[in-house]
Design a protein around this nucleic acid. Structure first.
Lengths: 183, 183
DNA sequence: ACCCGCATGTAAGTCGTTACATGATTCT
DNA sequence: AGAATCATGTAACGACTTACATGCGGGT
């Protein structure tokens, strides 16, 4: 969605290429988009006057387009940020698999949930590290919810809670599947 | 996705209409689909031999097609249920809004997070009720992870953890936004 | 008279993924 | 020599949403 890009451009001017890596690295755990989605989206945002770009010629690298958010883009972002979110079903394939786990081989199912527990535990550990870093480096900014640092930290906390809860649930399911006599 | 329908048909034979309401009511918190997606999907599954239907004529109601899962459909479901889930980004618009909350009016943002806390708290309460009912009614079946009741209970537990964590996070964000002097 | 439940579909459009397409420089 | 980074796009396909389309029977 365009607002993900606007949210990044509200912090700094970026190229489509930069946005692609920012979406992957920073918005990674709650949003996603490949470059093939981002370039056309930027064109659409520009058409609507929410962003503008400035061409930058480079000698050693390919020329690029640096996008900035416009005043009108900022207004749109402000309005969107406080508008109610439409209720959309959370789609989670693993939970769907859990729903049909009773028809499957219990050992194989248990192994899959253990693997997912590991994956989410790994992410949790990564987020905990980032959290430590943020709390050290941004101590002052985090006291003020009007700073971009606070907003980043808030999303990180969501990731922490989400991954912790997810890993725990996987462990809970795996434990029961392992405990059963059937294979 | 077709496996959501197969998972429901593995438990009982159903019409497209029944499937639509089951997806909404039972898979509601981790999957979703409207009838316009379900009817074509059933046709595709039938073409692949994973389900079959039997026409049922009715006097007082419109005629209907009752779909059942085939042996081949059961095998496909078994294999899918233990296959690793592809890593896909979780898309969450509210978290995206949190990421840009620093540009918005703090009071309005706080109100939105309070409203979301309420919504998730409400769902949590509904799930807790269902949980109580399941633990009473299915006491024996829940000890065996090879039963459909256990599988349903496992998905419910995910919903419980998810909503609890989500509501808590909303409260955390709302509290900070309310505590700030800026408006 | 109108809405709700039962029952089944199609069509248009948006969103997202994967693959196609190109090309220079820098690191291994 | 080959891979990675920077840099920007298009095309085909699949998933999902919203709207269009029809029709009977029962309840308010």
């Amino acid at each position: 969605m365009g607002y993900a890009l606007l949210g990044l451009l509200a912090r700094e001017a970026l190229t489509g290429y930069d946005l692609t890596s920012r979406v992957r690295e920073r918005l990674g755990f709650f949003w996603g988009a490949g470059h093939s989605q981002i370039y056309p989206e930027l064109a659409k945002l520009e058409e609507r006057g929410l962003v503008s770009h400035r061409p930058v010629e480079q000698a050693e690298r390919p020329d690029k387009k640096v996008y900035s958010i416009t005043a009108s883009g900022m207004q749109a972002l402000e309005a969107w940020a406080v508008s109610p979110v439409p209720e959309r079903p959370t789609r989670d394939e693993l939970v769907l698999k859990a729903y049909s786990s009773w028809v499957a081989d219990q050992d194989e199912a248990a192994a899959m949930f253990r693997e997912e527990e590991r994956r989410h535990g790994e992410r949790l550990a990564r987020y905990e590290e980032i959290r430590g870093w943020m709390e050290r480096e941004w101590e002052e900014e985090l006291r003020d919810p009007g700073t971009p640092q606070f907003a980043t930290y808030a999303t990180l906390r969501r990731g922490l809670g989400y991954e912790r809860e997810y890993a725990e649930w996987c462990r809970w399911v795996a434990e029961r599947l392992e405990g059963s006599a059937e294979g």
